[in-house]
Measured scan of single mutants.
Amino acid sequence: LVRYRTISKIPQITLNFVDLKGDPFLASPTSDREIIAPKIKERTHNVTEKVTQVLSLGADVLPEYKLQAPRIHRWTILHYSPFKAVWDWLILLLVIYTAVFTPYSAAFLLKETEEGPPATECGYACQPLAVVDLIVDIMFIVDILINFRTTYVNANEEVVSHPGRIAVHYFKGWFLIDMVAAIPFDLLIFGSGSEELIGLLKTARLLRLVRVARKLDRYSEYGAAVLFLLMCTFALIAHWLACIWYAIGNMEQPHMDSRIGWLHNLGDQIGKPYNSSGLGGPSIKDKYVTALYFTFSSLTSVGFGNVSPNTNSEKIFSICVMLIGSLMYASIFGNVSAIIQRLYSGTARYHTQMLRVREFIRFHQIPNPLRQRLEEYFQHAWSYTNGIDMNAVLKGFPECLQADICLHLNRSLLQHCKPFRGATKGCLRALAMKFKTTHAPPGDTLVHAGDLLTALYFISRGSIEILRGDVVVAILGKNDIFGEPLNLYARPGKSNGDVRALTYCDLHKIHR
């Protein structure tokens, strides 16, 4: 019993810090008490220290592992850092350059016999395009090294910054494609005289377009951006097909006994025919423009016929181009109408809503002055909100995010209106959640004399007048207030005048 009563005193000691020596009952000389009392004092002292730490809000209350900052290894790049964003855009520009100039170089340097010394005699450094290609190869190699040090988000939505895990993730992902696209074939085969082989191998750079397509997928929600990307894709495919079309004609031209190829026909049409040795002929500019003209006309199913396939190889390629053109029509131009419709969806919704308003007016036989006010209010409210119901949009977000959005939407009023000066951010967040926005066209009466005042109004834009009878008592403008002081009276009061809008007004109100 003594032991039980001794232990039962522990909660009292913990909360009230009572010393055991003052209790005459606990001072009985028993061996059990002498053993338990020192333990009680020690526990009391420890609990006292913990309570003191909690009340003082000291940093040592938290466990040590929670006080440590997340460790980022040296030379690790955050995937959302500004440097990584700028670097990704730079790589994107280099990939676009590669997609345009690599097929052009591979096709127009394929057994090209233009006048001038061969590239091997001039030297590697004197070729501007080769120098640019070398810079692109170096940048792609540097990009691989950067990807080995860039964080990523795993399946659990955690940012991984450990170098080993980053390397394994990159090896399992895009490393092989990036490595093949970054191989400097110019340096590996330079001086061997195989410019045709170098041009063909350099087309491996186009593998990076797969990554670019995935990154550009984030802009699919913007109709104008999608339309622009589709047109660029169409032009890029036409450019690639033009390079292939020229390569076919250029390879067949020296081996044909009869002059029936499209390059021969082009030379005869523009007065620059090929001679018996295969030299001469149109310039590279004429060849490229004509090839691009043929691919565009074939892809769009126009086909004027002034550039036509004559050999079997050219006919087979033309059939493939027609098939590609039909697929592009289905996948690209078939979506253009939907994209344009999405661009004008706001206008369509406006006309639909206006039609419903006019049908309501016609069905209920609203008189002319009231009908005009109804239409003007709808037009003004639509121009202010673009038909978007803010309350319906915010309803799907958590309250903390709703408060931040409301604070942002009402920031101008909260910053410049005098009653809100000096208020804490928590108070402003709470008030912003209570605001209701209303609009009024010129001549609209917001409050009639004798109406119950259940709200306090803040003028965000425009001006109003307060009338008693036919006498203008006051004219209020931006950041002015009218209405009933909230919670100042037990019952809502009545208006002693009319409140009429002089201009288009936007008002925020808080109800009782």
Rank of each mutant, 00 (worst) to 15 (best):
A119Y: 07
S331C: 08
D137H: 03
C427L: 08
A225F: 05
W382D: 01
A235F: 07
I284F: 01
P184I: 01
A106D: 01
Y329Q: 15
D286Q: 01
A225W: 15
A99Q: 01
Y65K: 08
H364G: 03
G305Y: 01
Y293I: 01
Q253F: 15
I72V: 12
L263M: 01
G443H: 06
V136E: 01
H439F: 12
V226A: 14
E114H: 15
N312D: 01
L93A: 11
I72G: 15
K172M: 06
D133A: 01
A130F: 01
I198A: 05
A224E: 09
G396T: 13
I189H: 13
A119L: 11
L414R: 03
N306V: 01
S105I: 04
Y80E: 04
R358V: 01
I177N: 01
D178W: 01
Q402P: 02
C122T: 01
V95M: 04
H351I: 03
L355N: 15
Q372I: 06
M231G: 05
S308T: 09
A338T: 04
P309G: 01
M139A: 11
R349I: 07
A106L: 07
A440L: 08
E121N: 09
V302T: 14
K395E: 13
L93T: 05
L414M: 08
T102G: 03
A338C: 07
H408G: 02
M251I: 08
H73R: 12
K395M: 08
D268G: 02
L201D: 01
A381G: 10
K215S: 08
D133N: 12
Q365E: 03
W245C: 01
L67S: 03
D133S: 12
E112Y: 15
G426V: 02
N265G: 01
C417G: 10
A235R: 01
V302W: 01
F171G: 08
S258E: 11
G396P: 04
A291C: 01
G422A: 13
R342H: 14
F83R: 14
L188G: 11
M322P: 01
A449K: 12
A107N: 01
I189V: 13
R362P: 02
H264M: 01
S345I: 09
G443I: 01
F304N: 01
